[in-house]
């Protein structure tokens, strides 16, 4: 199985965090207490997080209008809108990233002992860290794809477009998510919470790798806005 496990660095810039705290992209001088909480929790997340990732490359066995079936993996990319992203592809890279369980535990503790602002800021920074981690995995995968003379598609995740989130369990099984402590709840949510899964297609045809990141919004950068479940609120 073509699979890699990586321990990833976490070098989060403040600018990456601001959108996740509803502060826009460049908020200018922040109130001292907000600034201090960001500093405090950025430091603690950097210390608590153990960012890890899994990368697996699978060949495509078959593509129909509503299913992409992979070789040697139970994961299926389902839904006509989701499949449309991969029609020119020959392979699929599966990515899974997590910050590890200590972040969830600490957040749980903060919610019991600290104010809502502390929990909100910790949670926002952790979300930014998870996004940062999947971005690094994305860049590694894209580098490999380009060097193999293919073009990468945009990143796409279960739950986006019409790809049911119920496929999350197959996803985690297909990348042996247990290796980095990843599991799925009965409602198809990842545990630890600060985790992300995504696929990238290998295309012989150059594709627009479009991330329509709405300015200053906490965009997950996973796909075009059209397929995003947050689009109505985000773009309003």
């Amino acid at each position: 199985m073509n699979m890699r496990t990586l321990n990833l660095p976490l070098l989060l810039d403040r600018e990456e965090i601001y959108p996740f705290l509803n502060l826009g992209l460049t908020p200018g001088p922040l109130p001292a207490n907000v600034d201090k909480l960001i500093d405090t929790y950025l430091r603690s997340i950097t210390q608590l997080a153990k960012p890890q990732g899994l990368i697996r490359v699978c060949s495509i066995r078959s593509i129909t209008t509503d299913r992409v079936v992979l070789d040697d993996a139970s994961l299926v990319i389902a839904g006509p809108r989701a499949v449309a992203h991969f029609t020119d592809c020959e392979k699929i890279t599966l990515l899974a990233a997590t910050l590890g369980p200590a972040i969830d535990e600490h957040l749980g503790g903060l919610q019991q002992t600290a104010g809502a602002a502390d929990a909100f800021i910790f949670n926002g920074i952790a979300s930014a860290a998870a996004e940062h981690t999947i971005e690094i995995l994305d860049a590694i995968a894209v580098r490999d794809i380009r060097r193999s003379a293919y073009y990468p598609t945009a990143r796409f995740s279960p739950g986006y477009g019409d790809w049911p989130l119920a496929h999350q369990r197959q996803f985690i099984d297909s990348v042996s998510g247990g290796k980095i402590g990843l599991t799925v709840t009965s409602h198809h949510l990842l545990q630890p919470v600060k985790s992300v899964t995504a696929v990238i297609g290998w295309s012989r045809v150059l594709l627009e790798r479009s991330y329509e990141r709405p300015q200053g919004k906490p965009c997950q950068g996973t796909l075009t806005c059209r397929d995003c479940p947050l689009k109505e609120k985000c773009l309003s």
Binding site: P27, N33, A117, I121
Partner: peptide, 11 residues
């Protein structure tokens, strides 16, 4: 005002 300020005021 930013959302964190609103929450801090709430706290």
């Amino acid at each position: 005002a930013y959302l964190p300020q609103l929450i801090l005021a709430g706290d």
